[in-house]
Design a protein around this nucleic acid. Structure first.
Lengths: 215, 215
DNA sequence: TAGATTGTTAATCGATTAACAATC
DNA sequence: TAGATTGTTAATCGATTAACAATC
């Protein structure tokens, strides 16, 4: 149990540590020092040690870190040792793509329902989940224990759908809609704004060009 | 033309400003002060002014900012006044979903080709683009002027595909594969690691629970 | 024990916020 | 002109890096 919620900057880096450790395990690496890991990941060794020590001492002086142990501990911190039930709200292209993505389940994120307003989609099955109509949603959430809702809807009805989800007990929203959701502070929102990501890429293209022109 | 590339923290916020300004335009708002905008966006007015002044003075003392003007200027900074040709490499669920997404084109990101290794997909048309096989890619890139490649492939052949793209003149990669690409420093990489996003959400769920238990 | 490497404190760096003079 | 609000400098805060004592 952590003492308190840790700075966002650190949390942002945790999944990347987890990924690299997973790869090291696959390569059969048993132990690693912060220095070796820092070279692999291109961050400072200092940052690695500082980050990890937010959660307690996972290493051993003179030895380094035990890879499988550290992997598991970070997994626990990220809550990957538990199963999270998830629904997808909005079964358009993106919603369906996410529903088809197998790896989420391997990490403990189990899709238990898919919803849409479009009657054309009703009953279509995606990896064992039939697409349901939105009016079934409140009843569904009463019967099932669902923590996370993935919001893959057009912006215009995303806000009211988020309200509905919160009202029916959803604890976290993975938001792909292009707006900032206004939810009670005990509801987690994690945004994935693809168009903003693409704009940043575009900026960097632009920026590099300008840098170059001057030379 | 900017003097130099600006801090990442600022760039990360630009698309959000752009989005809010776009909404204000739709509402018919002509001018806005940093204070009004700060309330809407829940950031400090100081930050808004500081951010914008990285690119020059867009406002006017005693008046505030002209909304359509500021919107256009930020658009220019983000390179949204130009058309960017883009290909999608990897026509799985996610690749196809992105190919179907209409809004990118509205922002100047035009998809001009879709590629995959799977012969089953060959010739399938998505919004006017037929899926091509990967071996056609080098020739395609010679004939067409493509800046951006969206990488929606499984991790295992993402690295070599990135090399191939770079070798054939791609200037930016929008990377959805779960690995860090190793490219020359003049090639832009913008990562979208969905599973990492989901892990952060999971952490926050976890963290909040622990906070609560203690009470 | 000697060597290695962590955990942790102190120093530096960068980003955010506050304050206010400039000016529309 | 007086009021409002920016642009910008200075102060604060937080995050990163460096250094080193603790210890395996």
């Amino acid at each position: 149990m952590e003492e308190k919620c840790i700075s966002k900057a650190v949390i942002k880096r945790l999944p990347r540590y987890y990924r690299y450790l997973g790869e090291l395990i696959e390569e059969g690496v048993e132990r690693i020092s912060s220095n070796e890991l820092s070279e692999k990941m291109r961050v400072t060794a200092s940052q690695i040690r500082q980050d990890l020590n937010n959660f307690g001492g996972f290493g051993q002086q003179g030895y380094g870190y035990n890879v499988p142990y550290l992997y598991e501990e970070i997994g626990k911190i990220l809550g990957l040792d538990k199963t999270h039930h998830m629904i997808i709200v909005g079964a358009g292209n993106l919603g369906q793509a996410l529903a088809n993505y197998v790896k989420f389940e391997k990490r403990g994120f189990k899709i238990v329902g898919i919803f849409d307003v479009n009657p054309v989609l009703k009953g279509i099955s995606i990896r064992g989940n039939e697409i349901r109509m939105m009016d079934e949603l409140p009843q569904f959430l009463k019967e099932q224990d669902v923590e996370i809702a993935t919001l893959t809807l057009p912006k215009n009805n995303a806000a009211e759908t988020a309200d509905l989800l919160v009202k029916n007990g959803i604890r976290a929203i993975w938001n792909f809609a292009h707006l900032d959701l206004d939810v009670p502070k005990d509801v987690i929102v994690e945004n994935v704004h693809l168009s903003e990501s693409l704009m940043r890429l575009s900026y960097n293209l632009n920026c590099y060009e300008n840098e170059h022109e001057k030379k």
